[in-house]
Amino acid sequence: MRTAVSRLELLQPRSVREALRMLRDEGPLVPLAGCTDVYVGLNFGTLSAKRFIDLWPLDEMRAIRSTGGVLSIGALATYTELIRSPLVARRLPILAAAAREIGGVQIQNRGTLGGNVANGSPAGDSLPVLAVAEAMLVLSSAAETRRVPFNSFFSGYRKSVLRLDEIIAAIEVPRVDGRQWFRKVGTRAAQAISKVVLAGIRSDRPRIALGSVAPTVIRLPKTEGALASGAPIEEARRVLEGEIRPIDDLRSTAEYRRRVSANLLERFWRDTAG
């Protein structure tokens, strides 16, 4: 490991309240959840932070439950827990589908939904699902708990409205009507940092979100509008190709991403017809 571990400090709160107090009084601190992103950074010496706070043992933040029609997922719920949850299977099966495509079992046993959101990579596989589900993020600090719509959480590449003294406590998913669809296209299904991910919901108000094609996950209001107004799929494809501006990086060219995105749109529409 490239980082000198003896110089790293770890605070170990025993409750969420204590954690929030520490974040207020002893910050700045970097939260640890399942560490599958944090330790990649530490191992390569690319993460310069020296002071951390361990959220992993806080079981209060792990529960998956349904209250008053809202599916509430604790930020610490792991991919394995999402895959096994009967509630997720019933209410938001595309979240379990996304979880199954993340890493191998070792990563699924540790990686958390809150970590995927907080990490904010545009390639985060769960993010398009939360975007079409119009999830709410429950953000807690010692001072207050506020709810921020997932779709206004990110403000740019790896930037969000999360404050330094705040944590993501839970992800709330309202009732989702319509047919759900999820697909990830990557070089190696289980391990690749995704190239293009599309999540869709087919209803009177179709919803579509794409991952890995922009600095953050995006919804496609124009394409959604075209589909809602009954435009043929060929036209919707053209709208989509004009609507997205893919990032051109080493993994694949922008043109490739645009084409794959349009193909995924067409498959979504075909698979959810009738």
Binding site: L10, N43, R110
Partner: peptide
């Protein structure tokens, strides 16, 4: 890979505290 409470995990990504 080791088993942590019976579950496979990558020990290169786990702090001792956890």
């Amino acid at each position: 890979t080791v088993l942590l409470d019976g579950m496979p995990v990558n020990s290169c990504l786990i702090p001792f505290a956890q």
